[in-house]
Each structure stands twice: as structure tokens, then as C-alpha cells.
Design a protein around this nucleic acid. Structure first.
Lengths: 342, 342
DNA sequence: CTGTTAGCGCGTTCAG
DNA sequence: CTGAACGCGCTAACAG
């Protein structure tokens, strides 16, 4: 604490502490690291001095000998941070507060920049890397020549030999339908986003499967276009004009759901009384500000982050990563757009 | 590239390269770092070997002697990442791609955890720290006993001796009014969020000043409550019932603005023809999905991040940080909620 | 119990 | 132009 002034005074070193305490560097080290080969009185003296001069062990030097740094790289292209933030938090949780620190690098979707960041992370000797994408479509692998383990989160790697974690969109699509069926709906349609996204396709597959399983026929084929509110509005207008008896809408995103609800109100339909609407992603700012609030499928991203961290940890400890993509369970968050008076 | 397999093969060291190239470590070092005290042929040989074994300089070892690590800590409590992500990106820009890496730590609003992270960052010998809050209210200083410079971004420090960067909310409030006046509005009201937030108060001050400067009297006092859509709806309903001739609404956030627009549609008012509405924060997902799209005041967070990085850089290079809080200019993003047919 | 010695991987004198 | 030697701060074997 008495380091002195603003950004100057070179941090105290173990040697400083040892000298001031009148012991050797090795003894000081043992005392501070709680080894039991030190006399109580000596330890007390060393600790007192350390406290006094505000000694902070130099993690760099420690890492140099230890062979591991206790750092992890989070390599992302998620410009909004929508996926990377919960994953980061989950990872921090799993690593145990402060044991591990995370380098966050944003490649902005640029492969060159990604290589650059990767290089930097390796130079800094991170113990492992988590790659976070912003779509569930497979992304190019970083390859296997890397000296540290890599886990892919949200976007799986396109190489099946890598270890990837991604939410199970198919199950999510199913869940949405099953919930609406439980709510007594039977004329259910699906409005979703960009058909080039795996997420859109997978959720639609789940939708179709669950409809078939329930013995229901959708009044219309799933409609794909874009992940926007305006598409939600337009699609809803179109569909309800053609099929006025629709009583449930499964949406591919919360934004689409907001648009759908919006359009329904314009057309004088009540949500959820006339029509139940369900979103996807459980994006708080959209879901809880909606009127009524939005039932939505949540990807459990924090859990995904925790798991990614745990997998990486295991790999770092030499326990090896099984190749393949884990599809993680999603969960339904029920609010007022499917169940009245909630 | 030929390091070998998955996460095992200890990374090649400068010594390895030197041995394989048949030169001393010192020569290898010079060759690789582009010093000109090396014969062309020797350099070529060394570089070839380095490439072949996939040599990566150990940044830890470099930092140990260099005295600086080329790392920066980003200490935040912004759970959503709404502020921290653009600031991170701005900082990465300013530092120059890859020269500097950022440790991102989320304290989750917990002072204990913050101390813990701070300690870890200092152990890792970061060259400097940027503290990012999620409100513009002053936050507790980290103190001045730190061995590295600190810059506060978004949330200023409560200690005027620290260096802080925060958006100029007062000017933002003014700008909103001035824009509406330019658009020919004169009966303008202000609906904003939680009155305990400095952001709400400062924007309201700007609102009042600009109204006075324009010689206008607001039909109603600014209304404070919460940063939500539902408050926007309720407040708008209330206000328009009492003052049907209002023709402009300055909102304290985009969420509030969304609610206001929503209510206006319910009441059969057209935006922007009957009433112009302006939001705050320019939160893309809200602003561009609105119908009509939302004119909004943008806090220029990336620029703020860039500047924070630059200030920190200067301080690291010993150029010293002037104490005080810099209020950064904001900018208006004009869309359809104030100007028709845009 | 304590101190001495030897590295960890690299950059940097300073002789050759 | 090249190499031997030292130090960055710390931990881990050994001796004493």
C-alpha cells in the first residue's frame, strides 16, 4: 500500500522483501507461499514486511517457471457482445474468481485479424483458447497445430476433430411447439429469420418434428426471411390475412416475435388470448419490455460458457478433449405472451 | 507450424532455434528482431529455422526484462456488455491491432470481487487499467496508491484527482431539443428514466436549458421514473391525455422512446407527422427495429474507448494524466421518428 | 529450519 | 559480425 505515488515507484520485488526482513530470497518465497518449512516467527516477519511494502508477486516470473500462465484467450467475432459476455461470465465463474484471467480479442469477422490475435495469444502463452462465434453455423477451425487446447463455443468448428459446444436449436424448436400445444393451441405457424443460418434451419426442423409428433398440421409452411421486427410484422400480416384462424406463432427470434405481436395488435388480435406468441434467445431488453412480456427459448449461454471453461480446464490438465460437437440443452422462459395473467 | 500434435509439444524456444541454426542465442535474437548487426545469410538461416519449428517468442520472458507487458486491464461491472464492448473495440483500435492485449474482468457490481480482480491485474503487471461503469454516476476511485495509471470510462471516478471520460449528457439533452425545434416543433416534453441516475438529471438539465434558450415553455415538467418501455407508454398516455397538443417528445432512453411511440400509435397519433419522438443511446437493436426507426442521441462509445486508450497510453509513456473529468461530445443520429420519409 | 544454486526464456551489454 | 555472460523475478532442488 505504501508503494508511493502515481504509476512510478517500481513494484517491490521478492528480493526487496527478503532484504528488509533479513532473510534469503528462498525463505521469503516459502514464507509468502505458505510452505510449512518456515519458522512461525520468520514467516510473520516476512509477511509483515511484504504487507508494508505492498509486495505483489510478479505473475510473469511465476508463469515462466510454472509453465502455465493462468490465462485464457477468448477469441470472438461477436461485435455486439451478445454472446460473448455471458460466455465470459460463465467462464470466469468456472475458472474460479481470479485464478484465471481472460484476454478478450475481437476479430470483427476478419480472418487476418483473427490470425493476428491468435498469434498474440500464443505469444502470451495462454493456457487455452475459447473461440466464440455469433452464429451457430460452423466456422473454420483454427487447426490442430496449436500448442494449446481450443474449445469452440456457440459457433462450432467445421472440423469434427475439434471440440465444440453449441445450443441445441432443434430441441429449442420442438420445445416451443410443445409449449404452445400444452397451452391448447393447434393451428401453429413458424416465422423465422435468414434461411442461410443454420439456426433458422435447425429450429424449423424442430418445429416440423414436434408438429408431426403432436399430429398437427401447420396452416402454412415456415416462413424465412430476416431476423428483424419488420419482417415479423410483415409475415404476420400476410399469414393472418390468409389464415385468420392461426392461434399460435413460433418465432425464430425475439425481434421477430416483437414484430408479430405488434402486427397482431394492429389487427385487433389479443395476445395471448387469441394468439400465443413465442420468441427465441430470451434477449432481456426485448423480451421483458414487450407488451405482453415475451415467452422465449433461452440458450443458456452462461451455462455454455461455464461448460466451455470446464472443458478447456480439463484439456489443460491433460485430460484430453473428446472430438465432436456437444449440443447443449436450452430452456423455456414462460411469460405473458403465451400464458395470460402471468 | 510443425510443432506437433495437440497441446503437448513444449513450444520451441529461442535456444532451440539457435541450436538448429548453428548460431548463438544472441545472434538468433538479433536476427529475429530485425537488428541490423547480423549478416544477411545468417539472418535468413535463423528465420528459416524459426519458421520451420514454429518459433513463438515468449512474451512473458520478454516482458520480464522489458518492464512493460503490453497488456491492459479492463475492469467493469457492465453485466450486459452494452458499454464495455464498444469501449473495448475502441481501445483495441487505439492500441494498434495486436500490440496490446486486454484482460477483461467483470466484477458484477461487487466491490470485493473488484478488489480481487484488481489484485490479479496488478500481479499480471498490466501496464494500465481502464475502469468501465454502466452509469454516468461517479463511482468510487480505485485510489492513487496503484503502481499503474488508471482511466475511468463512462462512469467517472468520484475523486477529481483521477482522470475520467464520460459522455456529455447535458449537451445530449440540448441537442435533442434543438433538433426538434429545427423540425418545427414547439410543444415539447421530456420523458425520462430513474431520477437517481445522473444521466437522467443531466439530460433533463440540457433539456431545460435548450428550451429556455429557444424561448419555449414545455407543456409539462420532465417526467422521471424508469428506463423501460412500459414507463414510456404510461407516461405518454398520461401526458397526451392532459396536453393533446404536444408535438415533440424527448426521451431519456431508446426503450422509453419505443414505449412512447407504441402508445402514440394506440392513440391514433402519427409519428413523426403529429408528434416527433427522439430516443437516447442509439441502441441499434431498439432504434433500427422501431417503426418508424428511431432518431437517437449516440454516446460515441467507441470514440470514448479510443480516447480512454489513448489517454492511458500517454500515461504509460510517462506523459502524465491531467486530473479531471472529460465530457465527450455526443452526436445525433437522425432517422424516421423525427423526419418523415427518411 | 534456512541459505545456496540452478534454471525458466529472452534481450542486452561487451568482448572477441 | 558473432558469442559469452548477466539479469529480469521467481520457484525448486539441494545442502548446510
Amino acid at each position: 500500500m505504501a508503494d508511493g505515488s502515481t504509476g512510478t515507484g517500481r513494484a517491490a520485488t521478492l528480493g526487496d522483501v527478503a532484504r528488509l526482513a533479513g532473510v534469503s530470497i528462498a525463505t521469503a518465497s516459502k514464507a509468502i507461499n505458505g510452505r510449512d518449512e518456515v519458522a512461525q516467527r520468520t514467516r510473520a516477519r516476512v509477511l509483515a514486511v511484504a504487507e508494508e511494502v505492498g509486495f505483489t508477486p510478479n505473475a510473469l516470473a511465476q508463469s515462466l517457471t510454472a509453465g502455465r500462465t493462468g490465462t485464457v484467450g477468448l477469441l470472438t467475432s461477436d461485435l455486439e457482445g451478445r454472446f460473448v459476455i455471458p460466455i465470459l461470465m460463465g467462464a470466469e465463474d468456472a475458472f474460479g474468481a481470479g485464478q484465471v484471467n481472460v484476454f478478450l480479442c475481437d476479430a470483427r469477422g476478419d480472418a487476418i485479424r483473427e490470425q493476428y490475435h491468435l498469434k498474440a495469444l500464443l505469444n502470451r502463452r495462454v493456457d487455452g483458447i475459447i473461440v466464440v462465434g455469433r452464429q451457430t453455423d460452423p466456422r473454420p477451425s483454427l487447426g490442430h497445430e496449436l500448442p494449446v487446447p481450443v474449445v469452440y463455443a456457440y459457433s462450432p468448428s467445421d472440423d469434427p476433430a475439434d471440440h465444440s459446444l453449441t445450443p441445441d436449436n432443434r430441441v429449442g424448436g420442438r420445445m416451443a411447439v410443445e409449449h404452445l400445444v400444452t397451452c391448447g393451441r393447434s393451428r401453429i405457424v413458424h416465422i423465422t429469420g435468414d434461411p442461410t443460418y443454420a439456426a433458422a434451419q435447425d429450429r424449423a426442423i424442430g418445429f416440423r418434428e414436434a408438429m408431426a409428433d403432436a399430429g398437427l398440421q401447420s396452416p402454412a409452411e415456415p416462413m424465412f426471411a430476416s431476423w428483424t421486427e419488420s419482417w415479423g410484422r410483415d409475415a404476420a400480416t400476410l399469414l393472418f390475412r390468409r389464415h385468420p384462424d392461426i392461434d399460435g406463432v413460433v418465432c425464430g427470434s425475439d425481434q421477430i416475435a416483437r414484430g408479430v405481436i405488434d402486427a397482431l395488435r394492429d389487427h385487433g388480435r389479443s395476445v395471448p388470448d387469441d394468439v400465443a406468441v413465442i420468441g427465441y434467445d430470451n434477449w432481456q431488453v426485448l423480451a421483458t419490455n414487450s407488451r405482453p412480456e415475451l415467452t422465449s427459448v433461452d440458450n443458456n449461454l452462461e451455462e455454455l460458457g461455464r461448460l466451455a471453461a470446464r472443458r478447456l480446464f480439463d484439456a489443460i490438465d491433460g485430460r484430453g478433449l473428446e472430438p465432436g460437437t456437444e449440443k447443449l440443452p436450452v430452456r423455456l422462459v414462460i411469460r405473458g405472451s403465451t400464458i395470460p395473467h402471468l
